[in-house]
Design a binder for these strands. Structure first.
Length: 530
DNA sequence: AAAGGGTTCAACCGCGTATAG
DNA sequence: TCTATACGCGGTTGAACCCTT
């Protein structure tokens, strides 16, 4: 590794002449010989010295290790080495499926509390868990998979992060966790009385995603949501959802089902009528259309300036104008369209877009292409179909669906959960079959029947898509009633606002009761206008 | 076989907290 | 009560390894 920063150790070792101080060049400290600390990988000799020391003196007082043993390592490094590699009863090797299941459950419950999680996994270290989770998170993010199975999604609100996530509630109570868990944020989508989605205004969000977000870091997958794509589909979900996760659909239905799958897995919401039973198809959509149509990119109704929310896979670059600078590629396909002058939700020219190839970029591309199939939409708007008006995009992509293996293949939760979705549209060069197997939970398999019982008032859990955990809100938000996850055995976070009305999510808003497809459709939380 | 890109994992860093003086 | 020190935790880094082309 050879990291050799010259920053002085906080442990301030005083060693001058270590017998091991010359076995490498990874030393830090003063050049006067007063402090010589070695960094980088441990050698066998160093390990032996440390083990010997701990055998004699026991754990603790790590700074004394260097003093008494001559080891040129700071106490911190010694502790880490011992805890992660040298102490007895450490379990090495890959996690077993049981352990993986447990990790997922623990993370759903605790969040990034690696040490606490490790306490439940004998022989495993927090570092192992952290690495495992980060790897898994990347994998899921890349594949567009949820981090938690649906039955855990309601749990997936770590205790320390169960907070209210609504304007007026979090109102700068230092609600850095809003819409975030592990950094994944959740843009909310509201629907107006016509079922037209728009993004509500969230004051004081920007700037709260700094440290500790996980994804607020340079490695984060930040996400701007000034404009949020929301799709409405002509097809009734009930027709397609049963296919979801059950294998190939008939040829005639394949396009629709795939489109539906795509939308569902990517969190595109259906808009429903007031009776919550009939989806609204507000933009002149031909309900008989057998093609997916009417994909609408809704510009924020109120968003002003950068409202940097976070979602997976995407990274935006904030421009000096407070806008999120779209990537050139994305601009080519999506953003080049002139701004809409429609009163309806529109695809703004400054629609945020990924700065790098990502989930939403492809989704938006996909959806945009699909949207152009809606002739009504096309003719009634100033929308320029431009480069991607050719519906061949959909056709070709739909064709690609057929090229993927049986989505019901049990080899991967990816296949179960998002059959054909990723491969067909998100990452063309990353077939679903490349996704490593994940621990399966049968509850992931779509329960189409329960899905039918869902209606639009259900709050989507976009965070569950990738492990985020922010609170979500029910339709009853107008009454300032907020639903937080109160789940079996998982205490509600103690940092919830006292004003919060916490209810058990056994209402129709229950994430648990929501079918996977509906949950997957939860990139956007559905909120009423209030 | 080599190159390039992605993944894994050990280790470091900074910060917060606990504790002793 | 204040300060210094030790410890623990979570985030981040980057070399080594692996896989694909």
């Amino acid at each position: 590794m050879g990291r050799s920063s010259n920053t002085e150790s906080e442990d301030g070792l005083l060693s001058t002449d270590s017998p091991l101080s010359n076995d490498g060049d990874n030393f830090s400290g003063g050049s006067n010989g007063s402090i010589v600390l070695k960094k980088g990988p441990w050698t066998f000799a160093e390990d032996a010295i440390l083990v010997d020391y701990v055998k004699k003196h026991g754990e603790g007082n790590w700074n004394a290790v260097q003093k008494h043993s001559g080891l040129s390592r700071c106490g911190k490094s010694c502790r880490l080495r011992w805890a992660n590699h040298l102490r007895p009863n450490l379990k090495k090797g890959a996690f077993t499926p049981e352990e993986e299941q447990l990790i997922i459950k623990l993370h759903a419950k605790m969040g990034n509390k690696w040490a606490r999680m490790a306490a439940h996994l004998p022989g495993r270290t927090d570092n192992e868990l952290k690495n495992y989770w980060n790897t898994r998170m990347k994998r899921c993010q890349r594949a567009g998979l949820p981090l938690y199975p649906p039955d855990l999604s309601v749990h997936a609100q770590p205790e320390n992060q169960r907070r209210l996530s609504l304007p007026g509630i979090y109102e700068d109570k230092g609600c850095p966790d809003i819409m975030q868990s592990n950094g994944y944020g959740t843009p909310y989508i509201m629907f107006d009385s016509f079922g037209i989605p728009y993004a509500p205004e969230f004051p004081s969000i920007t700037g709260n995603f700094s440290k500790g977000n996980g994804f607020g870091s340079p490695q984060s997958y930040s996400f701007a949501s000034q404009t949020i794509g929301v799709a409405n589909f002509a097809q009734e979900p009930d027709e397609s959802m049963p296919e979801y996760g059950r294998g190939a659909a008939s040829d005639s239905d394949q396009t629709d089902s795939c489109v539906s799958r795509m939308s569902q897995s990517l969190g595109l919401c259906f808009a429903y009528g007031p009776d919550h039973t009939k989806k609204l198809l507000p933009f002149g959509v031909n309900q008989d259309s057998r093609h997916m149509s009417n994909v609408i990119f809704s510009a924020s109704k109120h968003f002003a300036g950068a409202q940097k929310l976070e979602l997976p896979s995407l990274q935006y670059q904030e421009t000096g104008l407070g806008l999120w600078d779209p990537s050139p590629e994305f601009s080519d396909s999506i953003v080049q369209s002139p701004p809409l002058s429609l009163p309806r939700p529109s695809l703004s020219s400054h629609c945020p877009s990924p700065g790098s190839s990502g989930l939403l970029e492809d989704l938006l591309y996909e959806a945009k292409a699909l949207s152009n199939q809606s002739s009504d939409w096309a003719t009634s708007s100033n929308f320029s179909h431009g480069d991607i008006s050719d519906s061949s995009a959909l056709k070709s992509r739909s064709t690609e669906f057929k090229d993927y293996p049986d989505p019901s293949s049990p080899s991967s939760i990816f296949n179960i959960y998002t059959p054909g979705t990723i491969g067909c549209s998100l990452e063309d060069d990353m077939p679903a079959c490349n996704v490593k197997s994940e621990v399966l939970n049968e509850s992931w398999i779509l329960d189409a029947e329960s899905d039918k019982k869902q209606n639009h008032s259900h709050c989507c859990r976009p965070d569950a898509m990738l492990g985020s955990c922010g609170c979500w809100v029910s339709q009853t938000v107008k009454q300032q009633s907020f639903f937080a996850a109160e789940t079996d055995g998982i205490p509600i976070g103690d940092d919830l606002s006292n004003n919060t009305i916490i209810r058990s999510l056994k209402s129709p808003c229950s994430w648990n009761n929501m079918s996977p497809s509906r949950q997957m459709s939860g990139i956007f939380s559905v909120l009423p206008n209030f």
